[in-house]
Structure formats: C-alpha cells, structure tokens
Design a binder for these strands. Sequence first.
DNA 1: GATATTTGATATGGTGCATAACGATTATTA
DNA 2: TAATAATCGTTATGCACCATATCAAATATC
Lengths: 172, 172
Amino acid sequence: MTVSKTASDAVRSSRALRREPVDPAGDDSMLQLGELSGLLGYSLKRAQLKVFEDFLRCVAPLQLTPAQFSVLLLLDKNPGRNQTEIANTLGILRPNFVAMLDALESRDLCARMRSTNDRRSHILVLTDKGRAVLARAKKLVANKHEARLIEVLGPANHAALLEMLAKLAQEF
Amino acid sequence: MTVSKTASDAVRSSRALRREPVDPAGDDSMLQLGELSGLLGYSLKRAQLKVFEDFLRCVAPLQLTPAQFSVLLLLDKNPGRNQTEIANTLGILRPNFVAMLDALESRDLCARMRSTNDRRSHILVLTDKGRAVLARAKKLVANKHEARLIEVLGPANHAALLEMLAKLAQEF
DNA sequence: GATATTTGATATGGTGCATAACGATTATTA
DNA sequence: TAATAATCGTTATGCACCATATCAAATATC
C-alpha cells in the first residue's frame, strides 16, 4: 500500500490547482464580502493557497511539493537526525511522516539508515540525487517563486511580511 | 449519510488542535531551519494554522469553524443568493458546499428556499437563530480573536499585513 | 420542439491530519 | 538482574478537505 501511495504521489502536483473565488462579473454582480475582507485568517488562507499554487508551478519540473521540499532542506541542514526529530521540527506527526519518506526514498532522494547507537531509529540521509534535486529546487524557488513574490510585494514589504508571519507562527 | 456527517461536525471544533513544531530543547538541540525560515509559503502556512487555531478557540462557545462563519457572514451581507453564488465567492466547490449547508441547516442557522423565478435554485436565508449566532460570533471574533492579533502585531502592522495578504490573494 | 445549459445533489477518490495500537529496542527501576 | 516503562518506526483507521464525474429537474437556447 505504501508503494501505490508513492506512485500516485508522483502525479499529484501535476494536477492543476484552481479553486478561484469566481465572480468576474459572472452572474448578477460582485457579492459583498463584508467584514470577511478584514478577517486576517481569511486573507491568510487565501494567500497561502495562492503561494503554494505558485510554488508547485515553479518547481513542477522536479515534482516536489512544499512539504517534500522542506524535508529535503531539513535533511541537508541537519545530517544524522532520525525520523522523529525531522518530523517534529516540521510539525508532521510520525505516523504521517512514514509515507512521506517512502515516497522520497522510492525516488532515491533520501535513505533511511539504521543507527548503530540506537537500533530502533533511522538516521535520515540525502542521497546524491537528493542533493542534486535539492540544489535545482533551491534555484527554481529563489529565481522563479520567491522572485515573483518580491516583485509583487516589493522587497521591503516582502521582508516585513516574513517577519510578521514568523512572529505569528511563534508568539501565537 | 449527510445527517451523520452533520452530527460529527458538531463535535469537530471541540477537538484540541495541537501539532506544534516541537523542539523546546527536547532532544539534543534545536534543528537548523536553514532557508526554510525565509520561505514565505512556509511561514504563511504556519501562521495560518495558528490563526485558525485561535479562531476556533475564541468562537468555540458557538461551535463555528472559520468556513462556517464566512458562510454566515456572506448570507447576511448578500440576501437572496443561491448556493452556487455563495459557494463560488468563497472558493468552495458546489458538491462540497452541500454538506456544509446541511450542517448549518440542521442547526437551524440558515435555510434553503426554492426560488419562484428559477425552481432549480435554492435561495439561502439566515434564520433568526442564524442572525443571533452570527452577531455573537462577530463579537467574539472582534473582541477576542482579532483583538489578540492586533495586540501581538500592533495596529499598523496588522493593517499592513492585511493589505499585503489581500494583494497576494488577488494579484498572484 | 429538440438540444444544450444550469442547479443542486450523489457518489467516489485522493490527500492531509489525528489517534490508537503493535513489535522491536532501549531506558528505568524494583 | 529481572521486571517494567518508555521510545522508535510502523500499521491501521477515521475524519475533514478538496476535486471530478455524473445525475434528475428545471431552464435557456436554437
């Protein structure tokens, strides 16, 4: 079952994501959003969907989801860690992390190695292919995805936005 | 099947939401996030989860999810609309909107009325109870949820954040 | 009047998230 | 040391969310 999940994963990000709040003068007139536009959570969710959508587009050649990219990044920056540690810092529950790793490992992007100290845990390592894919992904993300974000927002706003979101993610 | 879905929905928001990126000096040391902290999508998602979590806490007495609250808001501001129109402006697909309405209608917060002009469509209306619940929800959201956000970010930053998120949701 | 479109609805499948439980291994402690 | 508890990866399972295809009824279009 893990293998079939992996296979379907490979096609997933190629599916077009489109659930626009349609109303370009489609029916009668534009509906009134009311205090909805002042709800931070509402705009937050909407913006997040758009940004993820763009991420998938930009990194589509490599078939990486945002979550997969974050795993590869973490593995690169933190060698010698086990599944629990990586999953925890990403806010992923261990049971759900298993299938994620199965997918990455089946594509030879990373590997599980039984630890010699603690034979329960798996030390996670990037493969050479994993490092290569990560390097290409980083370039696509920086030059296409983030570049577009900075262009739309402006560099100063982009930085301010990042800071505020980080604050929300921490002190909230 | 729609009814059982509704029944389980009523308990949903009471379930504690906790998937913190655990690492308060738990194991060895803090893992390096690397360029992850500079990824807007990452912080965006993290922040969105936190904000929704707080929304659910604040409005828990009324058992309303963010999506349900947005529906009630729209119905109040846009009387006489049908399911397709409401669902579209919220980015909800019509098939998925059916169960949402079933849940709200079973709690007597809104009602479907067959249109006299077009007997295919259902005109959606808030019930008296729906209006009352919405009024209470608005107060909770403003005085507890949004108030806390403004307190953490500062009023000016909060406004700037809203503006940037709205721009992302539109021009992206 | 025949055909196409729209509306709400159903069925279905994929994906994410959460909990309980298990075997293997390690840590704790009686 | 022996018994017990805790941890690691894993499986199974269920719910919520999102997406597509399809349907009957009603309407629009030709």
